[in-house]
Amino acid sequence: MLIAFNKPYGVLCQFTDTDGRRTLAEFIRQKDVYAAGRLDHDSEGLLLLTDDGRLSHRVTDPRHKQAKTYLAQVEGEIDEAALRALRRGVVLNDGPTLPADAAFATEPEWLWPRDPPVRYRKSIPTSWLSLTLSEGRNRQVRRMTAAVGFPTLRLIRVRIGGYALDGLAPGESRIVPM
């Protein structure tokens, strides 16, 4: 079984939490499924859950280079120089990243409001970019955008390999064909 889930902001990618934070158990009723990969507490979007260990491995193991696409709202007006740097790969404290597919983006019309909203600062504009990675380090997109001078304010994963959000609202899930 494979479940596509639109993880809301502020939800942990686990089913239990001793600190009382929101978890997948609030949304996923199917038993014996586990997240294939992770999305940080402060990130949103596509999360795959499965009861198939081999499928989970194919999705998460870096050797399979499963492309993951994100939309990021960043502080400042992202420029071509920053996108070029992301396309070449940037050096992070744990070493250089692989090149990413980076492009200007606009805020999608289908995007839901975030709760709580992203902080608004009248004197500092924001912009959007699309970033596709084939590796999955901890908080990688956030660290990459910060490394090129544009800290991430909002991060939404929209695609993992051949699987996409495809209209799922935050907190919604659907079973998808494997």
Rank of each mutant, 00 (worst) to 15 (best):
L12S: 11
D42P: 03
L168K: 04
T97I: 13
A35K: 03
T18E: 15
F5D: 00
V74A: 00
G167D: 01
G89P: 10
V148H: 03
A164G: 03
W110V: 00
I3W: 14
F15C: 12
V33P: 01
H41M: 10
Y163H: 15
I3C: 14
V141G: 01
T18H: 15
P170C: 02
R63C: 10
A81Y: 08
T132E: 01
F150E: 00
G171R: 01
S56T: 11
K65M: 08
L12Q: 11
T60W: 07
T132G: 02
Y163W: 15
I160H: 03
D32V: 06
L24S: 11
R139A: 01
D40G: 01
A85G: 13
K65H: 12
A103V: 02
D17Q: 09
L86D: 05
G53K: 12
A81E: 15
H57L: 13
L111S: 04
L48M: 08
I156K: 03
Y163T: 11
A103F: 12
K122P: 14
W112I: 03
V148T: 10
E26K: 07
P108E: 04
P151E: 06
L155E: 00
T18D: 15
W128M: 05
R29M: 06
M1P: 14
R29V: 06
T69L: 05
N6S: 14
L12R: 08
L46K: 02
N93G: 13
M144H: 05
A102V: 11
P117M: 05
E44Q: 03
A169M: 09
H64C: 09
K31R: 15
D166L: 09
L165V: 00
D17V: 07
S127V: 06
G171D: 04
G149N: 05
L24I: 06
P99D: 12
Q140C: 02
P151I: 01
E77F: 05
I78Y: 01
A147N: 08
S173A: 11
A35T: 08
P117L: 07
V91P: 05
Y9N: 00
S134Y: 09
E109P: 03
L155M: 10
D51I: 04
H64I: 08
Y163G: 06
T106G: 14
V33Y: 00
V91Q: 14
G89V: 08
G89K: 08
V158Y: 10
Y34H: 11
D52M: 12
G53H: 09
T152L: 02
T18V: 09
H57G: 12
T106W: 03
L48G: 04
L98P: 08
T18W: 11
P62T: 06
L131N: 01
L39D: 02
G161W: 03
A4D: 09
L92N: 08
I175V: 14
L155Y: 05
R137P: 07
P62L: 10
A82F: 06
E26W: 13
R137E: 13
R84A: 14
I175N: 09
D42C: 08
R58S: 09
G45Q: 09
E75T: 10
